Simulated assay, not measured.
Amino acid sequence: MYTAYGLLVDSELPLPELGQVRTPGRADVVVRRGAVEPPSATAVRLPRGLWADGDRIGIDVPGVARYVCERGTRITVEPVDGAAADAVRLFLLGSALGAVLTQRGLLVLHGNAFVVGDSCAVVLGRSGAGKSTLAAEMHRRGHVVLSDDVVPVDDAGRALPGWPRIKLWQDALDRLGLPSTGLRRVDDAFAKFHVPLERAAELAPVPVRWVYVLDRYDGPLRVVPVTGAAVFTSLHEHSYRNEILVGDLRSTHLARSAALARTARLSRIDRPRGIDSVAASADAILADIDREETQHAPSRTTRAVGA
């Protein structure tokens, strides 16, 4: 039995990335290997090999596996003959588990979360925006990283802790001065590694108070408040596998986004193009949080920060 995001996972497939439970209880999610029933004629075909068919979400990954997620409680995996086990797990613990969390009514964001005081900040961004590198920098500065890549937020506005690891490319490891020796690759096909994180104890869900979206532009690094309808647009854009947000899942996503918008402040981190701004971005985020803590109220103006 394994644990992830506060859930007990009973899996036929070995999942070394997840923590194991010594005194397991009743599983919240069951993972089984087997034949995946194809979508029905009335299924909604979605981009990137995804489909929605009633209470089932399907994920077809050519050359790897077919997955189907049902009612937020079961994942069936049908690996392609000869597919690497690491590749099968990569999509199982990413797209498939993310779909299950969405089916369970959580707001599942594509980013990372780190703890500041008794709350946490969530950092969002497109693939390749540097989210994980920034999370590693925050960890280096002594902040506990709750989760990387997938950040589920419950109906109370709390981020649920994932397993203690960050996935970093070789160039990010080099930038942070971390060796790749002894690290396990995410997939044998490319130089991206699982970087374990030390944690003193099991973590509880943490209230989300700040959300930052990483972006690029032609100008100095700055923090720009995001308000109104743009908040919902940003949360939808940076939801994990937002293609599956159709029907009831779309309605739940809007409700969870509205709840988070009432308790958390969203800002955009505009960073200069072509410049390594990981340390400066971390400085800007922590300064912004400290400023709000000092003022006890969010600022409504754009704040320029030296890159």
Rank of each mutant, 00 (worst) to 15 (best):
W163N: 11
I166L: 13
R165S: 11
L235S: 03
H236C: 08
T263N: 10
R216M: 14
L183P: 15
R158D: 11
Y217C: 11
L266P: 12
K167P: 00
S239Y: 05
R216G: 12
Q170D: 09
S180T: 14
W169S: 01
L260V: 01
S251Y: 13
L214G: 03
K192L: 07
P164D: 05
R222E: 14
T263E: 10
S180R: 15
D218L: 09
L176E: 13
A261R: 10
F232I: 09
S239V: 01
V231L: 02
I166P: 04
D174T: 15
A255G: 07
A156R: 15
S234V: 08
V223H: 06
T181W: 15
R216P: 12
V186A: 14
D188P: 12
S257G: 07
P220C: 10
G162N: 00
V195G: 07
W163H: 13
S234F: 04
K192V: 04
P220V: 10
A201V: 01
R265H: 15
Y212D: 06
P196N: 03
A255Q: 09
L235T: 02
A159T: 09
I244N: 03
G157A: 13
V226T: 04
R222K: 12
T263P: 09
V186Y: 13
R185S: 15
R209D: 06
D215A: 11
